[in-house]
Nucleic acid binder design. Structure first.
Length: 247
DNA sequence: AAAAAAATCAACCGCCATTCA
DNA sequence: CTGAATGGCGGTTGATTTTTT
């Protein structure tokens, strides 16, 4: 993951930090603070440049930092703030406890970008409606075919069906067709390359739950699903499937 | 089992704003 | 005012790990 450590032509160490370096930096900052990052490595006994020390402290060593395991609430907040603020990562990170701007930025690019795009695609069905739909469990209908993916998200795996019903707040759409109900968790579902097929009776949902992302929010109206790889699904007959355009 | 592709994420780079001599 | 020093920010990279083929 990290870059291979090396000494540059000025005698400055670069690349991944060793545990020993971490300890030196941590010990120094905890005792003396960081009034001057450029001077710090000299006094802390580090061969790093000040910039590297600052980065290491801010993104990794700083107390109270939280790594990984973003909650659904955090992810939704990031998406919301990004929509309002754009790529102002430090401002966005400041609204989350224990997250560095670098970490938030990485998480955005790795996990949230596509989901946010779908949220935009679904903007004709507002967040308000999404919430109301979830609370009342009434079905809010929207035409998938009306959605225009201006952001260029690759929707190649999604068939267009007659209608879609929002069923909860975590980008879940229940897609209905004449003889088959399918469910997908927006982007996460596509990333997983699975389709969630509704079955009338299913003894267990364990296998599905294991494959869902941590952020997945299970909702009561959909009790029984099983997963199948997309390839399996697409080889099976499907009403109007091949005549319907993709989006 | 092996190779290729994708994902991950720590660290780097260049630029900008502010401070200060 | 000017310019150097500094902290901070956002875009990007790339080594390693994980997943897929």
């Amino acid at each position: 993951m990290a870059r291979t450590p090396f000494i540059d032509k000025n005698g400055i160490k670069r690349g991944a930090w060793s545990e020993d370096e971490d300890n030196k930096l941590r010990a120094y900052v905890e005792n003396f603070g960081h009034p001057n990052w450029r001077q710090l490595p000299k006094y802390a006994g580090l061969m790093r440049c000040g910039k590297s020390c600052r980065l290491r402290w801010m993104n990794y060593l700083r107390p109270g930092l939280q790594k990984g395991n973003y909650s659904l609430e955090e992810e939704e907040l990031i998406i919301k703030l990004h929509k309002e603020l754009g790529n102002r990562w430090s401002t966005i990170a400041a609204n989350l406890t224990g997250r560095s701007d670098n970490d938030v930025k990485n998480h955005w690019h790795a996990h949230l970008k596509k989901r946010a795009r779908l949220t935009n695609i679904n903007s004709s069905t507002s967040t308000k409606q999404l919430t109301e739909s979830s609370q009342s469990q009434s079905e809010q209908s929207c035409k998938l075919s009306e959605h225009n993916d201006q952001a260029g998200y690759d929707m190649k795996e999604l068939p267009i069906s007659a209608s879609a019903h929002l069923v909860d707040t975590s980008c879940l759409l229940e897609v209905s067709s004449s003889d088959l109900s399918k469910l997908y968790n927006g982007i996460d579902w596509i990333e997983e390359d699975h389709i969630f097929r509704s079955l009338e009776q299913l003894s267990s949902i364990n296998s599905l739950e294991e494959q869902l992302p941590d952020s997945f929010c299970w909702t009561s109206p959909i009790d029984n699903f099983q997963t199948e790889p997309l390839d399996n699904i697409w080889t099976q007959p499907f009403d109007n499937f091949w005549t319907q355009p993709f989006f």
